[in-house]
Amino acid sequence: MSVILMSMLIGLGVALFGFTLQTTIGGINRKVVGRMQKRYGPKWYQEFLDIFKALSKRAISHGWIYDFGVIMAVGGITATAMFMPITDSLVAFAGYDNFFIFVYLLAVGMLGMAMSASGSGNPLASIGVMRALTQMLAYEVPFMVVVITIIKVSGTSSLTGIMEFQQANGWFALSLPIGFGVAFLSLLGMLGKKPFETYIAPSEIASGPMVEYGGKQLGLLFVMHEIATFIEVSLFVHLFLGGASNIIEFLAKYFIVYTVANLISNLNGRFKIDQVVVFFYKWPLALAVLQAIWVLWR
């Protein structure tokens, strides 16, 4: 029992670490983008200030489901982050860091947020949720096909297991280059980076699901967004870039992946939601399936 309690504490630490890391890197990235656009950019800790300001303000609530959804969302995402390994030895629940946990436990958080947003009674929020779910259907399937290839090749669905396999046999980014590309596109979709930020679309549907939020609800959803980003980028690092054997390596890989995704985002416009679906089901899915057939059925 004490082992599990210890694991839970470590897990909470991982979640907190993820939040801090992503908020910092997000802040640095705002500066990077600022410099790219010939601005000075905000301070690197600006995102922390935004979040803590929102948390301390008194705001409105649209009923119990609006609050309950927020708690379920942030709680679900925190729980997901608790399973995430940081390096191959630093993992809270060793042996239970199954890939599917991340996909499905992440969905609890998403469901909570969608529920809360729809519960606000604002149609723009519902439209945002509709788009987010549709987009999820688009990017998730090619991504999963790539991942099953990885799981089958490495013989395990545990993230630390996949990491160890890559450290022995080379990165999947190199041995499965097509899958790497497809998964990177999916990552852009997961992170809601342009051209796949249709469900946020500030100028179109007023930030979609987030439209009604303010105060602590908004602050907590910011926290959720940061942790979710941490989970998605770390998944990518662990699955394709060989994970990390020490924390410096992890930080470096994480920073590079997130920054590249962010830079690409700033060079693109926005797809319409049906274009997103058609986009992912055309080449990425076909390539992912072809690669899987090539690697597995040979």
Binding site: R58, G75, T78, A206, K216
Partner: peptide, 29 residues
Amino acid sequence: SVFGLGVVVIAIIFFILPKSRKVGLMDTY
């Protein structure tokens, strides 16, 4: 249990933070 823990932790944080004012569903942006 991890999911339960996550929800409990966040719920505690949520209820510590300043209380929200209840508004109707028509009171939206």
